[in-house]
Simulated scan of single mutants.
Amino acid sequence: MTGAGGTTTAARFLGAAGDIPVDTPRVPAREAARDELADPRYHEHDPNLLERGVDRFWQWIGDLFTGAADAAPGGAAGLVVLALAVIGLGAALWWRLGTPQRPARTERPIRGGTALSAAEHRAAAAAHAAARRWTEACQDRMRALVRALEDRAVLDPRPGRTADEAAAEAGRLLPAYADRLRSSARLFDDVTYGGRTADESAYRALCALDEDLESARPLLAVGTAGGEER
Rank of each mutant, 00 (worst) to 15 (best):
L97G: 02
Q101F: 05
G75C: 11
L206A: 06
G88P: 08
R152V: 00
G194H: 07
H121R: 03
T8Q: 12
P218F: 07
T9E: 11
A17I: 10
A168R: 15
T8D: 09
V222T: 15
V86H: 09
L209K: 02
D189Y: 06
E229V: 15
E228A: 14
D39C: 04
G15H: 10
R26G: 00
P175G: 03
L82C: 04
D164V: 15
M1K: 06
S117D: 03
W94I: 14
A118R: 03
R122L: 04
V22G: 06
A168E: 15
A71I: 05
E200D: 11
P103R: 12
S184K: 01
R12S: 06
A163N: 09
A38V: 00
G112C: 12
D63G: 02
A205F: 00
P40M: 05
C138G: 08
G112E: 02
E31G: 04
R52S: 13
L82W: 10
A163D: 08
S201M: 05
L97M: 10
R122A: 05
P100I: 10
A123F: 01
P159A: 08
A166D: 10
D63N: 06
G53C: 07
T192M: 13
A69P: 02
L155C: 07
R186H: 02
D23K: 13
N48P: 08
R12L: 11
R102Q: 13
R230L: 10
A123Y: 01
A125L: 04
G112T: 04
L116V: 01
V81S: 11
V86G: 15
T224A: 14
D151G: 02
R34F: 09
W134T: 04
S215T: 14
E51D: 11
E107H: 10
E165D: 14
A166V: 10
H121Y: 11
A198L: 09
H121P: 01
E136N: 13
L220Q: 04
P21Y: 01
R143H: 00
A32P: 01
R12N: 08
D179S: 12
G78W: 11
P28M: 04
P73W: 06
T106A: 13
R230G: 10
E36L: 09
A216P: 03
P218C: 12
G62R: 11
T66P: 00
S215N: 12
R26A: 08
I20T: 12
W95F: 15
A225I: 14
L97P: 00
A32C: 03
E214G: 07
R161Y: 09
R122T: 03
D210A: 14
G3H: 05
T8S: 13
G75Y: 13
A83C: 07
G62V: 04
L14M: 08
D151P: 01
A85H: 07
G113F: 06
T24S: 05
